[in-house]
Design a protein around this nucleic acid. Structure first.
Length: 285
DNA sequence: CATTTCACCTGGTGGC
DNA sequence: TGCCACCAGGTGAAAT
């Protein structure tokens, strides 16, 4: 489900609710697939640790943890301990991270439950099991880092250099997480529409002007989507179970055959890099 | 190395 | 109602 705006929305929601809270007990399902770290090791590492902060890196939700006791209300910022571990959540296609109470019914495909001392509970639910959970102890401040650059902060020159000399289609390049991190199928299609660029165009042959337009439009569309709480295409909800509204603003994604919002030409769907790809044959050249 | 294809999963939808 | 094909927000391994 989740691309940068959805992950950002979820991370913010979780952060606001769990800062300073301590994990009393961690439970994991017996499925092996979602765990990059074995369940027992994750549970052991998580139990007793407190949340310092939760933030987004690319499509990953990164929870900064500390074994030291810490209460945000009573401690000055300087007194906040350095993180000594991280819990890293990748939601895959259908993953959800929900804040609940312990007595709420446990839905099918729940793979992790973290009971917190405040009485809240964090649940990881993922029907397709493409999501991944990882626990890592931090050695000398070497936190998790995505391979690619953040699309919201990258400058024009760095953005251009990502695509220089590349023969693959610009859409495929946008989806490559070791170039840019956080862009997925929805926002690749939407940003290319807004920049007026066909998805099949060779990345290395785009002009400087086109690339700068793409960088700006990508940033604008991601920011706008964050404002609206992300896109709820099927069952995406934020940490509080609230749906996003950006799907109402989609210009091309999943609008095959519907009229372009700008020129009324029917939106076309092709297969590119194995993904459904949507564009306006008139507005995008 | 760069690029493409496919497997990994479950569930929803639409055609017959 | 059932069966089946196809589609879905992602990625990483294997093939080219």
């Amino acid at each position: 489900m989740p691309e940068l705006p959805e992950v950002e929305t979820i991370a913010r929601g979780v952060d606001a609710r769990v800062r300073g809270d301590r994990i009393a007990e961690a439970w994991f399902s017996t499925y092996r697939e979602p765990f990059k770290t074995p369940a027992e090791r994750q549970a052991k590492g998580l139990e007793g640790r407190s949340f310092l902060a939760v933030h987004r890196t690319g499509k990953h939700i990164v929870c900064e943890l500390s074994a030291a006791q810490w209460t945000p209300q009573s401690a000055a910022d300087g007194a906040r301990p350095a993180p000594d571990a991280q819990w890293i959540v990748h939601l895959g296609m259908t993953g959800r991270l929900l804040l609940t109470t312990p007595n709420e019914a446990v839905v099918k495909h729940t793979h992790a439950r973290l009971r917190l001392e405040s009485g809240r509970e964090i649940r990881f639910v993922d029907p397709r099991r493409f999501g991944r959970l990882e626990f890592r102890e931090l050695k000398a401040g070497d936190g998790f880092r995505g391979a690619g650059q953040e699309p919201l902060t990258i400058d024009a020159a760095s953005f251009r250099s990502l695509f220089r000399g590349r023969k693959l289609a610009i859409k495929a390049a946008l989806l490559n997480q070791s170039l840019l991190t956080g862009v997925g199928n929805i926002y690749a299609d939407e940003s290319l529409f807004r920049a007026g660029i066909r998805p099949r165009r060779q990345a290395g042959l785009l002009t400087r002007t086109e690339l700068e337009r793409l960088r700006k439009e990508l940033s604008v569309v991601l920011e706008h989507a964050i404002q609206l709480g992300g896109s709820s295409v099927s069952d995406y909800v934020d940490a509080n179970g609230v749906r996003g509204f950006f799907q109402l603003e989609h210009c091309v994604y999943m609008r095959t055959g519907e009229p372009c919002r700008r020129c009324r030409t029917p939106i076309k769907r092709i297969l590119l890099a194995g993904r459904g790809t949507h564009f306006c044959p008139t507005c995008q050249v």
